[in-house]
Design a protein around this nucleic acid. Structure first.
Lengths: 135, 135, 135, 135
DNA sequence: GTGGTCTAGACCACC
DNA sequence: GTGGTCTAGACCACA
């Protein structure tokens, strides 16, 4: 009745990692959606299945799905499952852009306060993007 | 006797602002030190005085001073009070630089994930530094 | 023999649409009845046929027919199928009227709470009816 | 340290009422904020206190506060409590206006489908606003 | 089977 | 004391 697609598997969730577990799940799903490995209409793993896969409580996964739904990345239908929303990838990209702008703002504030020039910051940014691309 | 210096007065601490209250206190002191308004050897306000000034609990200020001491910006002497450390301003600047690099790293990660190019990020950074200078 | 009539075909049922799937089926049938495309005595498609047409589970259609029967829009006969009830169209219209009144009640409550005047609400209603007519 | 204000008391929460319990809590707080009985900066009852008052689980209240925070009506600070946000009342009004528009849209759709004229709908709306004012 | 809601209880960071 | 997160387990509506 509905497009199947359970081959979701992102890196292990770790309680040691910074930030709440459910945010790690959110980030994992967003990565799959942004990367196109999860297309609009595709079904996400069910709450229970993903909870078992990630060895995490059902509630934690549910919370992640709720946040993804609020962000317009997925939608959930009772009795059916959760699915990637139509503009899902766009949503993720837009939010990533906002996050980048926020981080740059913080960097500019801290850097200028520490006596760095705009050019210093740009050089540092270049080296960071270079690192990012390698990974 | 020790060099006096209570004229510490930074913007009001706000519960509405993001981050723990004590971090706001830490940031306030660091700003004074980095700006040279608090020189090495200067005494900081006593815990109780600063708590009263900022309308904040004593333990919040205590925690802030502890963090500042850990960061090598100030040092405390039993019964005497807290004083600006010798390399205090340098410490603050070095840490600000690290903070800027961290933020740039986060921005690069988020931006690249959102499909931005290095040049896009640099443009955004420039506009943010411009904003920062105005303020 | 009974009057034949399988030409029931309403827009695809979508999991993305708000509300349970069976309500979408109910709404679809009601639309056909209210519009006169299904006259009293006409046979509805069999459960299995409609389920296949709409690419929906059989139990979803069954549930929809049950609700339609409860609403007095259709009636079912063991072994024969389901048929449009005599006063079916009237029933649908009466229920639509009730639904409209309910929605207006909710709108009045929310609007007044938000500080809108009766005239404000009437203006908004006019613009909505204008939109509705266009479509 | 912070503006006190616990005299929050809205109608009893009922599991029999339609909609989730936490939405009833959300609606209750929004009503207080919109009515000005809870001003910006005022403290809301703590999670535990309100849970006890309403005879509801802590989690239910927490969920309500989370939604209110997402809606920009309140903000929460770990260790301090939850407080009415600065633009809180405006937020509530804006959202109420959107809700009213949605309801009017649904009413227009249902009403037109049931054969009502625009004037019929306006008359019904007038009678509903009259009812609303009495209460 | 699915997601949606509610519950009870834990531990942590912050004040 | 406060809110923030995670857990285990229940019952319901929907497919």
């Amino acid at each position: 009745m509905v497009r199947e697609s359970h081959p979701l598997r992102f890196g292990p969730i770790s309680a040691a990692a910074p930030g709440p577990l459910y945010e790690q799940v959110v980030a994992g799903v967003k990565r799959e959606v942004a990367g196109g490995r999860l297309a609009p209409g595709d079904a996400l793993p069910s709450l229970r299945v993903l909870a078992a896969d990630l060895m995490v409580s059902l509630i934690t996964v549910k919370r992640a799905y709720e946040e993804l739904e609020r962000d317009g990345v997925i939608y959930s239908r009772q009795g059916l499952g959760a699915f990637v929303a139509d503009g899902g990838a766009d949503q993720v990209r837009r939010q990533g852009l906002d996050a980048a702008r926020e981080a740059l703002k913080a960097a500019a504030k801290a850097g200028l306060a520490a006596g760095l020039s705009e050019d210093d910051l740009i050089d540092m940014l270049k080296s960071e993007t270079a690192m990012g691309k390698q990974t």
